[in-house]
């Protein structure tokens, strides 16, 4: 599951909800039962409509652009980077981000010698407090099954071919920690501002399946 459930999530679908949408398409039995539970729980006052709305908005609150800001800040500010690696919760709080209360965040740094890639084999644990909800592929059986045993071929599918000299560290976020990859700052970016740097930080590079973009906007392989 995209754990950080219900907290600090981001935009993921149609901005406006079409009230008609739910019966325009033929709903599965399961979908109908969800909508029934939704209406029953509000009718019975178990939860309020407002609470559900708040949770729904939280779900759309963050996007990978938020994680990218954190990474760019770490690239330009070595002291911030150290704090981020030592105590990610406190460091991202400095930038105005709060984490879901029941999961910690760990930031793992890619260097010229070590490359991290994150997976959750048991469900779909993901740093949603910073990146928003995970992409569908992150929750797929193929990604969950393959990444722990053949990370290099998974990354190759994403266009990243790593030399055998680079150590690949797969991180299976199996419990109460979410992992964010701090990618290596691309070469040739000395003159860029923090904002320009953030544009090079893709979602996939913070999961670790790719590197960030080059200053020309091309994926670095």
């Amino acid at each position: 599951m995209s754990e950080d459930h219900g907290h600090d999530h981001a935009e993921i679908g149609p901005e406006d909800e079409h009230p008609g949408l739910q019966w325009d398409v033929s709903l599965s039995e399961r979908a109908k039962r969800s909508l029934a539970m939704h209406e029953l729980l509000i009718e019975k006052g178990v939860v309020t409509n407002e609470e559900v709305e708040t949770a729904s908005n939280n779900l759309r609150r963050r996007t990978p652009a938020d994680g990218a800001k954190v990474v760019a800040k770490a690239w330009v500010d070595p002291e911030f980077k150290q704090r981020l690696l030592d105590d990610a919760r406190a460091a991202v709080y400095e930038l105005g981000y709060s984490l879901a209360h029941d999961a910690e965040l760990s930031v793992v740094e890619n260097t010229e010698d070590v490359h991290h890639v994150v997976v959750c084999t048991l469900c779909s644990c993901y740093p949603s407090s910073l990146l928003g909800p995970p992409p569908d592929w992150y929750k797929s059986f193929a990604y969950r099954q393959r990444t722990v045993i053949e990370p290099r071929s998974v990354m190759r599918e994403f266009g990243l071919e790593l030399s055998q000299d680079i150590q690949v560290r797969v991180v299976d976020s199996s419990a109460d920690q979410r992992y964010l990859v701090l990618p290596e700052r691309p070469a040739g970016t000395d003159g860029l501002t923090e904002e320009q740097l953030a544009d090079l930080v893709t979602r996939d590079s913070m999961i670790g399946v790719t590197n960030p973009l080059s200053p020309e906007g091309a994926p670095i392989s």
Binding site: H9, G13, H18, L27, S34, L35, H38, A55, S56, L59
Partner: peptide, 22 residues
């Protein structure tokens, strides 16, 4: 790995949000 993303539907938002509210 299929890298396409589906469009979230209303009931999926509601299911996630219900768990959040609970």
């Amino acid at each position: 790995i299929d890298r396409s993303d589906h469009i979230w539907t209303d009931w999926e938002y509601k299911t996630h949000a219900l768990v959040g509210a609970l």
